[in-house]
Design a protein around this nucleic acid. Structure first.
Lengths: 166, 166
DNA sequence: TATTGTTATACTCTATAACTATA
DNA sequence: TATAGTTATAGAGTATAACAATA
């Protein structure tokens, strides 16, 4: 493994550990809230939220998959669940018969709205409460740059995988 | 739900979204690396890392569970896996017969060491590369405060669950 | 009675590969 | 041939509840 064999500074380690621990605890709490308030998993919430923010409340499967989930089949699974609950609809795209357009329903928007106040409350309590406005700006700035960096370098290949030569 | 019905500012939302997206992508890449380099899940890696940092390379099951995993049974499951691979041992605690002391083995340390360089490399490429030293300090500071805040308020009850009164 | 840990069980989620259909 | 999506399948992980043993 010819990677940089350097070790991380205490600050670097500290930032990494804090990031992991905070996001993990936050995610856990949010998932619980979403489950309690709307019987939604986090991925399902993300899908509904994206659709809710989209033009016409619609998006193609592939675009959704790229943004939220890591495999197509995983998205199909979630879409089936959401469709059965009547929170989304699926229909073939008019312009490209291969594509499927997913649309949030009124009921989907209702569930989303029902879940949102509690969602914000958890964020408030857990993430924002101990921070100043300057802290939050800094967080947005720094993590925003990391996010842009990650989006630029295709995430899938970021960790070079051993390709089987057989 | 009598929670604060306020809405988040764009900056607050931005910080939250960036945190979620970054941690999610980072986690995904790290998990892939750990899987490839040492056939470890992230939880398993965390367990080994904690044990490696602990006095005597040992910790009680409960202490491990509190730090890494959310349910006891989940930890038992992971401990069984790691024990079968010879990466840890489990033995009754001398002072309290109810407790089980988990200890990392030499082989466990070897796997840990084998995984670490690649782990650092992923962190370098994905998280640290686009940041200045000041950014990293700021990140550690801000997220460190959030972490302390979360640790202070017991995470389990952070999102108040409906307790069945039956 | 409270705490520690395990077991049984059921469920959610994810990914891989094979497949269909359209571009 | 490449792309969009589904299906079949299998595996990992998680949590809940019941349980046994010790404090």
């Amino acid at each position: 493994m010819p990677d940089s064999p350097r070790s991380l500074s205490p600050t670097e380690l500290g930032a990494y550990f804090a990031l992991i621990e905070v996001s993990s605890l936050l995610r856990h709490a949010v998932e619980q809230q979403l489950r309690d308030a709307g019987d939604l998993s986090y991925v399902q919430f993300q899908l509904l939220a994206r659709l809710g923010d989209s033009d016409q409340g619609s998006q193609r499967m592939t675009d959704l998959a790229d943004g939220v989930v890591y495999s197509r089949s995983g998205l199909t699974y979630q879409a089936q669940t959401l469709e059965q609950r009547g929170l989304i609809t699926r229909a073939p795209a008019p312009d490209d018969e291969r594509s499927v357009v997913v649309t949030i329903t009124d009921e989907g928007r209702r569930v989303l709205a029902g879940v949102f106040p509690g969602h914000v409350a958890v964020l408030d309590q857990m993430l924002l409460e101990p921070l100043t406005a300057a802290d939050i700006e800094s967080l947005e700035d720094v993590l925003g740059r990391v996010r842009d960096h990650l989006r630029a370098a295709p995430p899938r290949s970021a960790a070079p995988r051993r390709r089987r030569t057989v």
